[in-house]
């Protein structure tokens, strides 16, 4: 478990990074937090020709408040976002989800964007990004592009080889939020996770782990929103979920489809409970 040889670059700017990616299309990997990538390097499941370490690019570690969105750079660490008052207030659900990601030491290093674009089925943050309508700022040598979360996250989708995600844009949405997940063991990687978030105007629900890509559940959300502050029964949630379930239920070595399907209403119910109990910040 030692990485195969690679060349290493430590660019100082996004522009320089984009140049490297253009020059080494498909053969380069970006290294930010490294908490997912380095294990792959060690097992030689990833063998890039060039490793581009973006950790020394200035400014990418900022969480900026813009008029209608929060702009978060590619070097914002998960723990940093989790502890950010701005995030807690303006991006309801993100901090709640981050508290479930890995463990405190991994979160110190792992980045929010790295977690999102790793595209791991079940990953907590993908549900948040889809539910809240996050957008990604991509930069390549040719210029900048903004993509919606659903254009980057999901099967067969990935960041184009010559591009770098420099920022994620979160709509400002002060709300109540609740997050819950089940794992094979408390604290282990999630099997099914649910985010429920509600403002006076709308309620949103997204599940990760049930399907290959996180699933946005408008029917369940309407049910929870209309019933607020009472939480609908698991049976009612399960019925709503059958309407929202437009993709195949995911199965992998960690857990089969039947369990995911059966547990999803219970996970949503608990997330909704937590949301109802949370202090209204809207």
């Amino acid at each position: 478990m030692k990485p195969a040889p690679f060349a290493y670059a430590r660019p100082r700017t996004v522009l320089e990074t984009a140049g490297l990616l253009a020059k080494h299309t498909g053969a380069a990997r970006l290294l930010a937090g490294g908490q997912s990538l380095v294990p792959l390097l060690a097992r030689r499941l990833a063998c890039p020709v060039l490793l581009v370490d973006i950790n020394r690019i200035a400014g990418l570690d900022a969480i900026e408040v813009l008029p209608d969105q929060i702009r978060m750079g590619a070097l914002v660490r998960q723990q940093q976002a989790l502890c950010s008052e701005v995030i807690r207030r303006e991006v309801a659900g993100l901090a709640e989800a981050l508290a479930w990601v890995a463990n405190p030491v991994i979160r110190q290093r792992g980045t929010v964007i790295g977690n999102l674009i790793a595209n791991t089925p079940g990953a907590e943050l993908t549900a948040v990004a889809l539910a809240l309508g996050a957008r990604f700022v991509l930069r390549c040598a040719a210029g900048e592009q903004i993509l919606a979360a659903e254009e980057l996250i999901g099967p067969g989708r990935s960041v184009p080889a010559q591009a770098m995600v420099t920022h994620v844009l979160w709509p400002r949405r002060p709300a109540q939020a609740g997050f819950f997940e089940v794992a094979r063991r408390d604290g282990h990687a999630p099997v099914v996770a649910a985010l429920v978030t509600r403002t006076a105007r709308d309620c949103r629900v997204a599940l990760s782990g049930l399907t290959r890509t996180a699933l946005v559940c408008p029917t369940m959300a309407r049910l929870i929103g209309e019933g607020y502050p009472r939480v609908p029964s698991r049976e009612a949630l399960a019925a709503a979920l059958t309407v929202d379930l437009t993709q195949t239920v995911h199965t992998d070595g960690a857990c089969g489809a039947q369990y995911r399907l059966q547990v999803a209403p219970a996970v949503s119910w608990r997330a909704a409970q937590r949301m109802s109990l949370s202090r209204a910040t809207a």
Binding site: M1, Y8, R10, L31, G34, Q35, V38, P39, A42, R43, D53, N55, N103, P104, V105, I106, Q108, R109
Partner: peptide, 25 residues
Amino acid sequence: HGVCGACTVVLDDVPVRACLLLAVQ
């Protein structure tokens, strides 16, 4: 591979897994 925590060190005041970083970092 970063799961067990046995190699935890503090890097510039932040606890990290030494097995998940390159020396050059």
